[in-house]
């Protein structure tokens, strides 16, 4: 079998192939240099002593990484990223799927709802950030309305850490302020997961549900036992896409809250930008970039591995 395939492919390296290769080479070279070359360069800088405007490429070992992991701000960044990612992905999945199931009930004006929920996705995170910065500003925005009920959340200026305990030099727990950022991010990205789940739901043949109902399954059981399992691949894709957005997030935070008091809303992306371009700590900045790359890789690599296996 394998031999046959090989023979076939050998035969097929013809003109067709060479043209395809010729057209791929320019973009291949560009990506090799401008993506992988620069990743390599960033890695090289991250283990150098290049921490001022004077280039110094002497080998520093893991000094910059050790510095970061001992740094209050970076520890806070990792904590914030963790909780932001969990809340963000969880809510995007739950709300997105919920809305998709509601819209899928063949209601009238379905297209209108679909579009309304999808629109925020057309905005840039900067716009979302600026708008939500005003909406969740504790002295204006929602609080004007909430004061009727006598509640005044401090939103992104809240410096409390829920269920916090000392860990390293930071207090580990859920930073209340990050919830405000999660709200903005979920508002923007839910439309995307809604669209994906809606496509997924449409892909499930009605016969399957009918069959389940015939077997006496309640409506809840139909969703629990038939629909949800069939939506698993969609959920996987949503998780991957949302995870790489949330792990790399910069623009939303930068426009909406900045680092926040006591770094409660700081993320590695913002730290990287500030330490590199304000403090001229190029090697530290490069180290942050590499750590972010590894974090994303933790999600992406198993996924790619899995889908490759699936194809085979």
């Amino acid at each position: 079998m394998a031999k046959e395939v090989q023979l076939k492919s050998k035969k097929r390296i013809t003109k067709d192939h060479w043209t395809a290769i010729a057209f791929l080479i320019p973009s291949f070279i560009l990506i090799l240099v401008f993506v992988y070359g620069f990743i390599g360069w960033t890695g090289y800088v991250s283990v150098s002593n290049y921490n001022s405007l004077i280039p110094d490429f002497s080998f520093a070992g893991l000094k910059n990484y050790i510095y970061l992991f001992n740094d209050f701000r970076f520890q806070a960044d990792l904590r914030n990223t963790l909780f932001f990612t969990i809340l963000f992905i969880g809510l995007v999945i739950v709300i997105g799927m919920g809305l998709a199931i509601l819209i899928d009930q063949k209601l009238k004006g379905e297209a209108i709802f679909r579009n309304i929920f999808l629109f925020p996705m057309a905005l840039s995170f900067i716009v979302t950030g600026v708008v939500w910065q005003w909406l969740l500003n504790p002295s204006t925005g929602f609080n004007q309305f909430l004061s009727v009920f006598g509640i005044q959340p401090k939103w992104y200026t809240d410096t409390n850490i829920l269920a916090g305990f000392e860990w390293g030099s930071i207090e580990f727990g859920l930073p209340v302020a990050i919830i405000a950022v999660v709200i903005a991010a979920v508002w923007q990205m839910t439309g995307f997961s809604l669209a994906m789940y809606l496509a997924g739901l449409r892909g499930i043949p009605d016969e399957l549900r009918e069959a389940a109902r015939m077997d006496g399954a309640s409506e809840f059981q139909v969703y629990r036992k038939v629909v949800l399992p069939m939506l698993m691949p969609i959920t996987m894709s949503v998780i991957i896409i949302m995870a790489h957005i949330s792990l790399k997030i910069f623009d939303l935070i930068y426009a909406m809250t900045g680092s926040g008091a006591n770094f409660v809303t700081d993320v590695p992306g913002v730290y990287m930008f500030e330490t590199t371009f304000r403090g001229n700590y190029y090697a530290n900045g490069a180290a942050i970039a590499i750590i972010m790359l590894l974090l994303v890789a933790v999600f992406i690599v198993p996924y790619l591995w899995n889908s490759r296996k699936g194809e085979q």
């Binding site: 209050f72 701000r73 680092s259 006591n262």
Partner: peptide, 18 residues
């Protein structure tokens, strides 16, 4: 230097809360 300033700003940010 801007390096010191960046770190001083971080220290101040933490101090304002803590």
């Amino acid at each position: 230097s801007e390096g010191f300033l960046t770190k001083a700003n971080q220290a101040v940010n933490i101090f304002v809360t803590q």
